[in-house]
Design a protein around this nucleic acid. Structure first.
Lengths: 205, 205
DNA sequence: ACGCCGTTGCACAGTACTGTGCAAGTCGAT
DNA sequence: ATCGACTTGCACAGTACTGTGCAACGGCGT
C-alpha cells in the first residue's frame, strides 16, 4: 500500500524540492540565471522545471514565499517574551542569522528594481516588528540614534547583509559572525559597545 | 576660428555627455536597461550611442570609471590632513555623501554578480583608505567593535546605502541624511552616540 | 556652395531566452 | 506485465536584445 499517492509523488516531490533548493543557490550566484541553468544544475531538463512551475516568476515567487516565511518565523521566535528591547534585538538578529545566509537570495533580489516591490511588501510584517522594537528602545532611552526607527530598520537590514559579505570574503568566521552582527547592530543603534558585547555574550546561542 | 575642433566636437561631445548622464539615471532605475531605452531617454537613436561607445560594456565601464574617480576624490579630500580618525571618518562620509546619491549606480551594479568583481577592484584604493582609517581608530581605542577593520569597512559601505534608501523612501530628508549617516557610521564603529553627534555637529558642512 | 562630421533610419545576422506541444521513454506500484 | 505518473528530448513560435553595415540627411565652419 505505502499510501496511495506517496509512492508516485515521492519522486516528483523530491525533484520539486531539489529544483527549489538548487534554484536558490543558483539564483544566489546570478539573479539572472536562466531556467536552463537552473534545470541543468538540478540534474533535470528544462521542460521538467516547467512541469512543476508554470513560469520563471512562479518559481521565484515560491522561493521568496519560503524564505520570507522562514525569516519571519525565526525573527518572531527570537524576540518572543523578551522584555528588554536591546536583548530582543540581539536575540532576533541571532535567530535570523541562523538561516539568513541560506536566503541571501532575498537580499540579492531585493536590489533588483522590479522584484523589489513584491519582496518589500511581503517582508513588511517583519520590518514592522523590527521598527516597533527599535522605537521602544529609542523611547526608553536605551538606544540613541539621529535616525527615526524606520530608517534605523533599513540600516539594521543592510548591516546583516554587510556581515554576510564579510563572511563570504573570508574576513570573518561564520561561527562568530552571528554574535558580531548582533553586537554591531546594537552599537549602531547607540547602545554602548561594552554593554552590547556583554549582552550578546550572555545569550548562550 | 572658434578653435579648430571646438566647433565640430561641441555637438558630438555634448551628445556624448548627455548619453552618459542619462545612461546613469536610467541604469540606476533598471540595471538591465537596454541600449534602446538609454538612447531614447537621451533623445537619440540607438545607432548613435554605438557611434560613441563600441559596446554596452564600454559605456558602463566609462560610467563606472567616472563614478569611482569622483568618489575617490571626495573621499580623499574629506580626510586629508585630519589627525583624529573619528573626525576623518565623519568628514569622508560627509564628503562622499555629497555625490554618492548621483552614483548609486555603483552600488546597484555592485550587487550584480558578474560586474561586481570589476567594481570591487577599482574601488580597492578607496576601501584600503577606509580600512586604514578604521584600523587606526581601533588601535587608538577610539573605536570599539568586534569586527576587524576590513569587515567594518563593509558595514560602513552598506550603511551608506541603507541611508540612501531611507531617503529614497521619504523616511529622511536629504539635507539631514548626510549628517545622520556620518553619526550612524561612527556609532556603529563604537563611538559613543553623544560624542559622535557632537563631533559631526561641529563640522560645518 | 562645398565638405566634413555627426546623426538618422532601416535592415540584417546572431544570440539567448521563455513557454508550449507532443511522442517516446522510465520507474515504481499493483 | 501493465497502468499511471513523471520525465525526457526535440521542435517550435515568439520575443527581445546586441552589434554592424550602409545610404541618406543635417548643420556648421570655411
Amino acid at each position: 500500500m505505502t499510501s496511495m499517492t506517496t509512492g508516485s509523488t515521492s519522486r516528483a516531490d523530491a525533484n520539486r524540492r531539489r529544483i527549489l533548493d538548487i534554484a536558490l543557490t543558483e539564483l544566489l550566484r546570478d539573479p539572472d540565471a536562466s531556467m536552463d541553468q537552473i534545470a541543468r544544475a538540478a540534474g533535470v531538463v528544462r521542460r521538467t522545471v516547467y512541469g512543476h512551475f508554470p513560469s520563471r516568476e512562479a518559481l521565484i515567487s515560491t522561493l521568496v514565499d519560503e524564505a520570507v516565511a522562514a525569516l519571519s518565523a525565526a525573527h518572531a521566535a527570537g524576540r518572543e517574551g523578551v522584555g528588554d528591547p536591546a536583548e530582543a534585538v540581539a536575540r532576533s538578529v541571532l535567530a535570523v542569522w541562523e538561516i539568513a545566509d541560506r536566503y541571501r537570495l532575498l537580499v540579492a533580489l531585493a536590489q533588483r528594481t522590479v522584484t523589489m516591490q513584491g519582496i518589500r511588501e511581503r517582508l513588511a510584517p517583519v520590518r514592522e516588528a523590527s521598527i516597533g522594537l527599535l522605537q521602544r528602545g529609542l523611547d526608553e532611552g536605551l538606544f540613541a540614534s539621529p535616525l527615526p526607527a524606520p530608517a534605523l530598520a533599513y540600516v539594521h537590514e543592510q548591516m546583516l547583509f554587510a556581515v554576510m559579505e564579510a563572511v563570504n570574503d573570508g574576513l570573518l568566521t561564520a561561527q562568530e559572525a552571528g554574535r558580531c552582527a548582533a553586537v554591531t547592530v546594537l552599537t549602531a543603534a547607540g547602545v554602548p559597545a561594552s554593554r552590547a558585547t556583554e549582552l550578546v555574550a550572555k545569550l548562550n546561542v
